[in-house]
Amino acid sequence: MLEKIQKMDQRIIYLVLLIALSFPMFRPLGLPVSIGQTSQDLYDFIDQLDPGSVVVLSIDYSPGAAAQIHPQTIAITKHLLSKKIKIVYMGLVQYASQFTTDAIAKAGDYNPVYGQDYVDLGFKPGEEATVSAMSKDIHATFVTDSDGTAIAELPMMADIKTASDIDLVIAFDSGGTRHWYVGQMQALYGTPVGCALNSVNVTNTMPYYDAGQVIGLLNGLRGAAEYEALIGDPGEATINLDSISSGHLVIILFILFGNIAYFGLRNSNKRKEA
């Protein structure tokens, strides 16, 4: 029996995990979500900003990480629009404009006016050099927006010229762009930086948070669900978080079964040898 467990066909593991992940999508479990301190800090910082403040959302994730980070983008966009905060979307990864368009479309009935309430500067290559250059002169770095319109023609951009004109930058990051914002904007110009990350990147961002260089951060899908709870608008992340619960539980059970089988077999072999 123990040997059978240890040599279990991996397709059975795949099937059980698939069922565990899919079931809550059809029958949500509605498990309560407590709010983590890092999410609360980011929410509080945005909530105390005055209407008309400027927030840069750097959309730096790939489609692979979108399941975790895109719900964060939507939730934060909703919060910013509800507070009448001006949003500058941009990206250091090439998918920025596609995710921006989708986030604005899913943000609800705020009807933001392009050029007055938000702009989309699109993708700009250059990585850390781009962050450095835009900190000194946004108009020289992003000459046009993602549609090719000169940003000098966008009314909202008239007063947004350097890092000093930005009240908060949030890096929606599945790679390493947050390090550039911390290094080139927060450290040099004191511009507050927040992060919205996939879970795997949280550990290596905590030193910035602890040092006060990152004012708050969202941790993967859980962070998105926490933010949805904070703005009182449960959405995609809240539903999908149940799948995380069941998925994690199944993986832990497999690990435990694997260990029980391993130690059971080892003891039985030892007894046979004795």
């Binding site: 498990l31 309560p32 978080l241 995380i244 619960s245 994690h248 539980l249 993986i251």
Partner: peptide
């Protein structure tokens, strides 16, 4: 893992 999921 359990700390990151509501079920934990």
């Amino acid at each position: 893992m359990l700390g990151n999921a509501p079920i934990g």
